[in-house]
């Protein structure tokens, strides 16, 4: 549904996107994560037809964002990271204005505004001036605004930034609902656990480049290199740590009470062989499992090089 192909974008001497390529399937909720300045907003702006790439192509549903920008605008809903609302307009008028701007016939607009306000849980705010709404309500109204023309793709840049936990939870529920409606959602956020909860897949960006992309499980697997393992035994944990340290692929062993933690660099067959060796050696193994990393840890791991670079400056 969405394809970036070798996109480059410079702002003066700053390279915001550097040969950025990514494919996003139809109906997915796709997370875009990366440190500040990674190029997420630039990538989203190009997709939203607000910026021209210096090189490369980007398409939405097969439509080129440069050559067929007007058609692209008809199938995307864009919510920028920072946005304002108009003074002196009521919520219904605000939505009707954007519906008119998307050439929705006049007779359909009042009903559409009502439906969308219900979708984002703001039905009682229809006649309230938008500038008097709370930040969370404005975010939800902006999301409703993105939907006035029933777009196939939603581009949401940090939709939950600055929201309190309740508002974030509401936003998350709305995005889940949009997925059920069949929308393809590209979403960026700094709140990684929440992205992990709602996204089918994520892409990690750094310095304008794609570092890794895939499902959350795939990302954490790719990012870890050597996996962190944990073995629980009934006794002789110290001896087991010494034994493991001599095995190929094992490093950084640490005995702690009745368990041993270590890093293991090997495939599943090698992992099975290691377990067999421990059992054959007479250690009473009660648990042997991988300690799974979450998205935040994966993000920190794959962007560690960048963090070190920043720290050196």
């Amino acid at each position: 549904m969405i394809r970036f192909n070798g996109i480059c974008k410079n702002f003066g001497a700053t390279r915001a996107l550097d040969n950025f390529s990514l494919e996003i399937g139809r109906g997915l909720v796709y997370g875009l994560i990366g440190p500040n300045g990674a190029g997420k907003t630039t990538a989203m702006s190009i997709l939203a037809t607000l910026l021209l790439p210096d090189a490369g192509t980007a398409t939405v549903d097969g439509l080129d964002v440069v050559e067929e920008a007007e058609k692209v605008r008809g199938i995307i809903g864009y919510m920028p990271d920072f946005f304002g609302v108009y003074d002196g307009l009521r919520a219904t008028e605000y939505l009707e204005f954007f519906a008119a701007a998307h050439h929705i016939p006049a007779h359909r607009r009042p009903g559409l505004a009502k439906t969308l306000l219900e979708l984002v849980n703001l039905p009682d705010k229809a006649d309230v001036y938008v500038d008097s709404l709370s930040r969370g309500m404005k975010q939800r109204l902006a999301l409703a605004r993105c939907l006035v023309h029933d777009p196939k793709v939603l581009i949401l840049d940090e939709p939950a930034s600055g929201l309190d936990p309740r508002a974030r939870a509401e936003m998350k529920e709305i995005i889940r609902h949009l997925k059920h409606l069949g929308k393809t959602v590209l979403i960026s956020s700094h709140i990684l656990p929440e992205l992990a909860e709602i996204c089918d897949a994520v892409a990690i960006m750094e310095k304008g480049r794609l570092v890794v992309a895939g499902t959350v499980a795939e990302i954490t697997a790719v990012s870890r290199g050597a996996r962190q393992m944990r073995v629980a035994v009934l006794d002789r944990a110290g001896e087991l740590a010494g034994f493991l340290a001599t095995r190929p692929g094992v490093s950084e062993t640490l005995a702690d009470g009745q368990e041993v933690r270590f890093l293991f660099d090997g495939n599943q067959a090698e992992q099975a062989a290691l377990l067999q060796a421990m059992v054959s050696g007479g250690w009473p193994v009660v648990e042997f499992a991988e300690i799974r990393r979450n998205l935040e840890e994966a993000f920190m791991a794959v962007t560690a090089e960048g963090v070190e670079d920043h720290g050196g400056n």
Partner: peptide
């Protein structure tokens, strides 16, 4: 007011 970008992503020229 940060409303221009949103306006430019509509069908208005």
């Amino acid at each position: 007011r940060q409303t221009l970008n949103v306006l430019l992503t509509t069908r208005l020229t």
